[in-house]
Write a protein that binds this DNA or RNA. Structure first.
Length: 932
RNA sequence: GCCUUGGUGGCGGAAUUGGUAGACGCGCUGGAUUCAAAAUCCAGUUCUUUCGGGAGUGUGGGUUCGAUUCCCACCCAAGGUACCA
């Protein structure tokens, strides 16, 4: 009987689907385990072999946990709102929902072929109204909340209103807009409703504000900072400019410290934690106020070096700083105007990449030193960014290299306030070795002492305060797109109002065109039925808008990360229509125990979703502040491109080894035309593309050998390998094993289809072992092979070292084959061990062993150390640390006896060549080392 | 520049707390089987060698009886981040 993988795999996939083998029960007496994959965006290109890597790993873990007796939740769904479907809609007029549906079906087919143990009954898509109902619901919760700094958590906005009514806002400690005005209770009560709403908006966690945004004209939308790479849009590479717009934002900055602190409690990869830490960018220092000569305004600066306050010799404002025009003197106006104009023309990218050019201009104004009263010239310079800190810097050239370079360039003074340090060549920025001088009351202090002293005095004199600054900005939450979640928002006199939660979901309206309107409104501006009737509580036609009962709805939609920020909780109770999830469901599943996905989401999805979770935790919706205890980043699988070498200007192609003798240009060809020995199928190439039809080949040893290059798997390099083709030729079990066998999960590694014959051959050998099953007592050898494997594989899975378990299986099967083992008592546990990795063949073998039903719940075999005990140990005998030969001794032989026998051995004499050993080290059970 | 991760045969990669470097697989070489091919099976495969051995885990030092593993300095690659005050 042959190993017919196609038949076996189809059979069991059908069985699992029909029996709902992997359906997770929320009301289970078993302990729970939640294994989650980052859900995919279903692109039109389908899956290539790189995509399932993480899914295979998580599936192995999920299946392993089922064998261990856990109730396992292992769901899958689709992040199905997104740009590509919308772009396609713009080009073709086809509704994005249609494209998305087609792509999802293709994904599902491909996923099904790989034999994953997903509970498909829980599947959802972020673009279905039944799902985004709850995305809209969370948005409303954020709108209805503010951040209380005193209790350090989000609280209902109704509490804030009560506080305003009782005491005004002077006592309140909250995270809010910078420019909130102070008022008393009586003043609050006297305000018009509209005015009150405007103030509340300054406190809400989801708020509307005029913000300077990254506007991408080509995409017609706003982008978040992390959607911009090197100054151009991540998708499409279009230029991005700064622009002021009224936008929804999320007050994620309120959670900066908690997002930072939370990292210590979760088992996530260090590089990922580092990039979140970096992104949040906490820095400790002081905010200092400088008076300006002849002006009522005081310039606030943030500094991390308050200890160097006496070293300030000038001040630099960002050219975009709002007060630049105000401070500039008549004489300097022309120069400043020209500089501001020039800076505004430079793109962010320009300013970023050009670090050598030093530029700036003097405003003619002077600030006054808070302690000495010295006059400090105010400059502007494009090295200061308006978006960081206060957009102003107190320049200390002796202690900061950029300030130093600026001072040198413009001949500004560089006072030295460090004891015993030479600053004639460069600034001195070493905090640890700082000793302050020429600084009045700070002289002789180190960095810590001086910083403390300065902050104390600033606070005492009311000229500044200690401050912690974060790089993290509030997240812009509006997108000028069609294919996203609509905001559950309508506008009364320009003030946003929430649609009642019982009326959700607010579904996306139909539009004729997916482009912005002629007036420049977002695509939803094309909808004709997009107004809210507060009486009827339903969406009605726009021409009914009367400003009394019918109001316009929001035209923006939510960004890509909205739908993925709480999906992991929704899987716990995905079809609940009454609540985002039931208390029982969240109470049982609690959170994700293992989350596997790519590291590219480090500062996007993985930061925003932690923010939403913290918020929902504050509001009592979820029981844990962090939703994923452990996270693993799977590495990328790269492609191995194949190159042919065309002799310039001809139709001749020379083999790899001959290319040096000619002037050639390398061309990439389809990797599927090349075999395991790098030989090209030249006839297939001639048919592949017309340009090769008349090609002539210069061979070496009768073969055409291709060159190889490892690079990202991509259609344009012709190195994409489709998992469907692999399943067809070798089967899903072979593919699963091979993906794991390639190397450690977290590392990136190149794909080369050739190697798959190794694991495929292993499965065939495994199959053969089960063809003549018997009930005989197993040999000691066979028991040893089995228990060695149980031990190693169990340890490997817990450590996510899947590559080494595949090797272990191979060794075990090689040994059992050599032993001619057909004993059921060995092969039955072996089938369970293999089952998480190669589930189809394992099910079939389980059936051959005489079982009915699925292997998936069979208990994981127990390791018994007594089978590994050996009577003899083969000792490596090394000389000066180098192993030279081996000797066998009884396992219980003592140190002295071993030493005696080794020294007496003729091979030892040979090695020593008459020298006498200086020292002999015997580690029982390990090694013998002779020094001499 | 800074942070992080990594560097072992022709290739992917193994190597418990420091204790036999190169497991396992690909590829390659030779052989068996076959009309032939595929498939399968057997033997060999780090380099070097005067066939005794010798060298060897990015480079150079150090600790140790013993280092791929620990320490110091450096080089290279990948990922993240950046006029961040």
């Amino acid at each position: 009987m042959q190993y017919n993988f196609l038949e076996i795999e189809a059979k069991w996939q059908k069985y699992w689907a029909e029996q709902q083998t992997f359906k997770a029960e929320t009301h289970s007496a078993k302990p729970k385990f939640y294994v989650l994959d980052m859900f995919p965006y279903p692109s039109g290109a389908g899956l290539h072999v790189g995509h399932p890597l993480g899914y295979i790993a998580s599936d192995i873990y999920a299946r392993f946990k089922r064998h261990q007796g856990y109730e396992v939740l292992h769901p899958m769904g689709y992040d199905s709102f997104g740009l590509p479907a919308e772009q396609y809609a713009i080009q073709t007029g086809q509704h994005p929902a249609v494209t998305t549906e087609t792509n999802i079906n293709r994904y599902r087919e491909q996923l099904d072929r790989l034999g994953f143990s997903f509970d498909w009954s829980r599947e959802f898509r972020t673009s279905s109204p039944s799902y985004y109902k709850w995305t809209q619901w969370v948005f409303i919760q954020l709108f209805e909340s503010w951040y209380n700094t005193s209790s350090d958590k989000a609280e209902p906005i109704s509490d804030l209103i009560s506080e305003f009514e009782a005491n005004g806002n002077t006592q309140i400690k909250a995270v809010a807009d910078e420019d909130v005005k102070q008022f008393k209770a009586a003043e609050w009560k006297a305000m018009k409703e509209e005015e009150q709403q405007a103030i509340l908006l300054q406190y809400r966690l989801a708020y509307l504000a005029d913000t300077e945004v990254n506007w991408c004209p080509a995409l017609g939308t706003v982008l978040a900072n992390d959607e911009i790479v090197n100054g151009v849009s991540e998708r499409g590479g279009h230029p991005v400019i700064r622009k002021k717009m009224t936008q929804w934002s999320m007050r994620i900055t309120a959670y900066a410290q908690r997002l930072l602190d939370g990292l210590q409690n979760i088992d996530w990869p260090q590089p990922l934690k580092d990039s979140q830490t970096n992104w949040i960018g906490r820095s400790e220092g002081a905010e200092v106020e400088f008076e300006v000569e002849g002006h009522p305004e005081k310039i606030k600066v943030f500094t991390t070096r308050p200890d160097t306050l006496y070293g300030v010799s000038f001040m630099t404002l960002a050219p975009e700083h709002p007060w630049v025009e105000r401070f500039t003197t008549a004489e300097q106006k022309a120069e400043i105007d020209a500089y501001v104009e020039a800076t505004s023309k430079r793109s962010e990218r320009d300013r970023m990449s050009d670090v050598k050019t030093i530029s700036g201009a003097f405003t003619g104004a002077y600030a006054l030193h808070p302690f000495t009263g010295d006059r400090i010239p105010i400059w502007i310079g494009d090295y200061v960014l308006a978006s960081y800190g206060t957009g102003a810097v107190m320049a200390v050239p002796c202690g900061d290299q950029r300030d130093y370079d600026f001072a040198k360039h413009f001949n500004l003074p560089i006072p030295n306030i460090f004891d015993g340090v030479d600053i004639s060549e460069e600034a001195f920025a070493d905090k640890a070795n700082t000793r302050i001088a020429q600084s009045d009351f700070l002289d002789g202090m180190d960095y810590y002492q001086a910083t403390k002293a300065v902050i104390e005095r600033l606070e005492a004199e009311g000229r500044g305060t200690g401050k912690i600054n974060y790089r993290l900005r509030d997240a812009v939450f509006s997108r000028q797109r069609y294919w996203g979640e609509p905001f559950p928002v309508y506008y009364v006199d320009g003030m946003p109002q929430m649609i009642p939660t019982e009326c959700l979901p607010l579904p996306l309206p139909q539009v004729d065109k997916y482009l912005p309107t002629e007036e420049g409104d977002p695509p939803l501006g094309n909808a004709e039925v997009w107004a809210w009737d507060v009486k009827k509580q339903e969406v009605v036609a726009n021409d009914l808008i009367d400003g009394e009962n019918v109001f316009p709805l929001e035209l923006n939609t939510m960004p890509g990360w909205a739908g993925s920020s709480q999906y992991f909780n929704r899987y716990m109770d995905p079809h609940n229509e009454e609540a985002i999830f039931s208390p029982e469901a969240i109470g049982y599943w609690k959170g994700v125990d293992l989350y596997i996905g790519g590291s590219e989401h480090a500062t996007g999805h993985l930061l925003y979703s932690r923010f939403w979770q913290q918020f929902l935790y504050d509001r009592g919706v979820v029981p844990q502040a962090e939703y994923a205890q452990k996270l693993i980043n799977q590495g990328m699988i790269t492609g191995t491109s194949a190159l042919v070498y065309r002799v310039s200007g001809t139709d001749q192609y020379v083999s790899y080894g001959l290319r040096k003798d000619y002037q050639v240009e390398p061309l990439r060809v389809d990797v599927n035309l090349v075999n395991a020995s790098d030989e090209l199928d030249v006839d297939a190439l001639r048919q592949w593309q017309p340009q090769f039809e008349k090609a002539e080949f210069r061979l070496e040893d009768g073969k055409y050998i291709v060159g190889r290059e490892v690079e990202k798997m991509s259609k344009r390099w012709f190195n994409v390998v489709n998992p469907d083709a692999i399943c067809e030729q070798y089967g899903a079990d072979s593919l699963r094993l091979y993906e794991m066998f390639l190397g450690p999960l977290e590392q990136s590694k190149p794909w080369n289809t050739a190697g798959i014959t190794g694991v495929h051959g292993f499965l065939k050998k495994l199959w053969k072992l089960y063809l003549n099953l018997n009930e005989e007592e197993p040999s000691a050898e066979a028991l040893k092979s089995l228990h060695k494997t149980i031990k190693k594989v169990g340890e490997d899975i817990e450590q996510f070292s899947f590559n080494t378990s595949v090797s272990t299986f191979m060794i075990c099967v090689n040994e059992l084959t050599a032993q001619k083992c057909s004993s059921k008592s060995i092969l039955e546990p072996l089938a369970i061990l293999v089952s998480p990795y190669a589930p189809h063949i394992a099910e079939e073998l389980w059936e051959m062993l005489g079982h009915q039903g699925s292997i998936s719940q069979a208990p994981f075999p127990e390791f018994k150390p007594e089978y590994l005990v050996e009577a003899e140990k083969e000792y490596p005998i090394s000389f000066n640390g180098k192993m030279r030969f081996k000797l066998k001794f009884p396992a219980d032989m003592g140190k002295e006896e071993i030493e005696k026998q080794v020294l007496a051995h003729e091979k030892t004499q040979e090695q020593m060549q008459g020298r006498s050993p200086k020292k002999v080290i015997v580690v029982p059970g390990k090694i013998v080392n002779i020094v001499g």
